[in-house]
Write a protein that binds this DNA or RNA. Structure first.
Lengths: 137, 137
DNA sequence: CTGTATCCTTAGGGATACTG
DNA sequence: CAGTATCCCTAAGGATACAG
């Protein structure tokens, strides 16, 4: 599903061909900010995605090399999902998304702990990036 | 269309309920980076969105206060669309999206002028934000 | 627990015609 | 030019049952 070949080589379009749906970013959010890593964790997120949709999106994310699926060493459950470096690189994007929503939506601001966490990461990131830039010049 | 009420108050979810489709961000891209402002400009973008979809997305973006539609003073054409402050605030998000895609997709890097522009904006933005942060402390 | 498979309904969207 | 409207098909997705 979602396999009608590439419409352009624009970077925004590239991102939209992976993340252009209601659910995919929510899985990344759960992996990145909520320390979720198992199928059922994702399934029981507040937004209640259907099991067939979840399975499909996990597969697409794996195909796009954004997550990896490995055998859970604890064997409490069978599989464990985690972000690849490519997936981790989405952090600045997600942070900016959270910042934007928190600024422009009142209800969203209610999730204070989550937003705070993102903002903390943001400052840390900005420092790191800025340091890298100054080092380069 | 796209009106099944809010599933959660999570900021990522808020963003996805506006931008969680293939097309909406492409319109914002055209407004923000390609100096497009008329219906036909959007319609003739490389990705070839259908006219009914475009009309629907423009309306949703207007309802969400991300763009405004005004009478074109030149009257070369009737309407002119532009970003509101809320829309302009999407810049860091879009920039991070471009940066991510350019890093992880080879084809995308081909659109060099566009990526360069985003990176330039990014550095400028980071400087501004950093200045604001240092000023605050 | 981690999924697949199926059924069914609705939403997305391409093509195209039409209106002010 | 700036859209609306319609037709029609496909994809998305909710519910639920089932399998390893």
């Amino acid at each position: 599903m979602r396999k009608t070949g590439r419409k352009s080589d624009c970077p925004i379009n590239y991102a939209m061909e992976i993340f252009g749906d209601r659910w995919t970013f929510l899985i990344v959010r759960d992996l990145m900010f909520k320390n979720k890593s198992h199928y059922n964790d994702f399934l029981h997120a507040e937004e209640k995605m259907a099991t067939n949709i979840l399975a499909n999106r996990l597969q697409l994310l794996e195909e796009n090399n954004i997550i990896i699926k490995e055998i859970d060493p604890t064997h409490g459950s069978k599989w464990i999902y985690s972000l690849t470096p490519k997936g981790i690189d989405l952090l600045p994007l997600l942070v900016e998304m959270i910042v934007w929503s928190a600024k422009h939506d009142k209800k969203t601001a209610a999730d204070k702990a989550f937003v705070k966490k993102a903002l903390t990461n943001r400052e840390k990131l900005l420092q790191e990036i800025n340091a890298a830039l100054t080092a380069k010049n």
